[in-house]
């Protein structure tokens, strides 16, 4: 479903992501872990189109994504839940989620301004889908609350709902659990498990290694912008290079690479 080939991105000569080749089949929940500065967020920005790669290729459902703008990637089914909140201020929770429907709907300024017949139909569809998405993340009761006044855990789930409203096929989640309390983490983990069962392909970047271990089918480990290990959670957790990276040691093979 998603393949990156020798993907690289440098900032002023320093590679944040270097020669990353991963391949995620449809329906998989792929965990991506790594210490701070491993290049996880950069990788996500490359896949969602907010950064252009210095080198390398991203292929999504058999098509190259080179030069495809972020909103077009959203229309192709790539959705992202950003680190932090990134909700739209001055809009209710429901309206925030409705924005996500942009990826799957089409009517524009003219039909809205003149209230053409197709407009009303599509608005109804958008509202319906947004309500479904809110329900899916368990937030129907907060539909009319301004998004910025929600607690962080709900803001995170609201972002997931916004992504779901666009009916994504590939969902990128950038540290969705960071800053959440234990109870909120549990709710989020259950939600992700639920989405996984529904067949949405997911890439999950997370600092909470135990959460990734319990959710992911396979895990890719990044360190200093390169893939240092990949495999099932069990295999990865026993990999000496991974242990070394997480303990902050400069192991000999990491240095000689």
């Amino acid at each position: 479903m998603l393949t990156t080939e020798n993907l690289a991105r440098s900032f002023g000569g320093v590679f944040a992501v270097n020669d990353v080749s991963i391949s995620v089949p449809k329906g998989e929940l792929r965990g991506i872990i790594g210490p701070n500065g491993a290049g996880k967020s950069t990788l996500f920005n490359l896949i969602s189109g907010h950064l252009a790669p210095t080198r390398g290729e991203i292929t999504y459902v058999g098509r190259s994504l080179a030069g495809t703008a972020p909103h077009r990637r959203a229309r192709e089914g790539v959705a992202i839940v950003f680190q932090g909140a990134r909700l739209f201020h001055g809009m209710t929770a429901l309206e925030n989620v409705m924005v996500g429907a942009h990826a799957r709907t089409s009517h524009g300024f003219a039909s809205a301004a003149l209230r053409l017949p197709g407009h009303r139909r599509e608005e109804r569809l958008i509202a319906e889908r947004a309500k479904e998405a809110l329900e899916q993340v368990g937030m129907s009761d907060f539909a009319d609350v301004y998004a910025e006044s929600l607690p962080l855990g709900q803001q995170r789930r609201l972002q997931v709902a916004r992504a779901l409203c666009g009916q994504p096929e590939l969902l990128l989640l950038d540290e969705p659990a960071s800053g959440l309390r234990l109870g909120e983490r549990q709710i989020l983990a259950d939600l992700l498990r639920d989405l996984h069962e529904k067949g949405i392909t997911m890439l999950l970047v997370e600092h909470d290694v135990s959460m990734v271990m319990s959710l992911a089918d396979r895990i890719t480990v990044l360190d200093l912008g390169t893939v240092i290990a990949e495999g099932t959670p069990d295999a990865v957790s026993r990999d000496p290079r991974v242990i070394a990276a997480y303990l902050g040691q400069e192991s000999s093979d990491a240095a000689s690479r």
Binding site: S48, H71, A74, A79, V99, H102, H107, E123, I126, R162
Partner: peptide, 28 residues
């Protein structure tokens, strides 16, 4: 009519975050 519609929500969204709006499918 514009404000209370799909493009209107897109406009209000991009006012806060162009990045999040574009990843929601809004042609910013």
């Amino acid at each position: 009519n514009i404000v209370r519609s799909r493009p209107g929500r897109g406009l209000r969204a991009l006012a806060t975050s162009e990045m999040a709006a574009s990843s929601s499918g809004v042609p910013v």
